[in-house]
Amino acid sequence: MIFEPHIHMFSRITDDYEAMAKHGIRACLEPAFWLGQSRTNVGSFIDYFDTIVGWERYRASQFGIHHFCTMGLNPREANDDRLNDDVMEILPRYCEKDSVLGVGEIGLDDQTPKEEKYMLAQIELAIRHDLPILIHTPHRDKKKGFERCIDICKDSGIAMERVLLDHGNEETIKITKELGCWSGFSIYPNTKMTPERMVVIVEEYGLERMIVNSAADWGISDPLQVPKTVAAMKQKGFTQEQCDELTWENPINFFAQSGRLDRTVLEEPAKFDRRETFTGNSILRGQDPDSF
């Protein structure tokens, strides 16, 4: 079984859920992020947050997949004064929702002072709500951005074992491996990491506190990159137990620090009844619930 710890299902279609379930993905986590274009007011965030604790959770469950999320103001929109303070005001209530297992994606993108300000404020929010944090690291000037994210975490006083530094690569693992934090790697079809490069990393650095994800979103991305990484690991001689440690035990152990992740619940697929609706809506589009 696989726990996909970073995927933006809000922007994916039901075929993806179906394929994910077929390839052993039992649970997924959706970090709050941006939408591809800028939001212009806090109401857009409220509706999005409601969706990822509501409709998206229901949608995932219709394929037997448990859906969780992290809440946060993403670094890109932290720069937008039309909404950054307003989003900070609404976050506390969303940090207490049952399916919220952390604060994220927070972090740095363009590495501006405003991004740093809101990153720090959200680490403090996570500490107040006793949640771990998922950090988006910059895709440009990555090494410097990683180092700055680490400095901000250290200054905040958050325990490093409650920090997941995501979007890492061969260069950043050298920095993060000994910090006591968790190192995340996003496996993309053409950019960031590939399954084969990821295998080389785990061969060299081991599996401890390592997490892989697809980070699939509205762009060219692939929600099956974690199962593909498992296949690549097996080709290189990793055992099923080792694959499970990387793609099941590790993400569960990290997010279980929220105190809201019941491992026994994950042992069974999410329960669903395709006749039931969510706020009057279903995924059936008029189809017979017993026909597929």
């Binding site: 506390p92 209530r93 940090c95 207490e96 929702k97 049952d98 105190g259 809201r260």
Partner: peptide, 12 residues
């Protein structure tokens, strides 16, 4: 205290 922050905690 903010009831909107308290309510989601009750089941847990």
């Amino acid at each position: 205290q903010d009831i909107a922050v308290l309510l989601p905690q009750l089941p847990r």
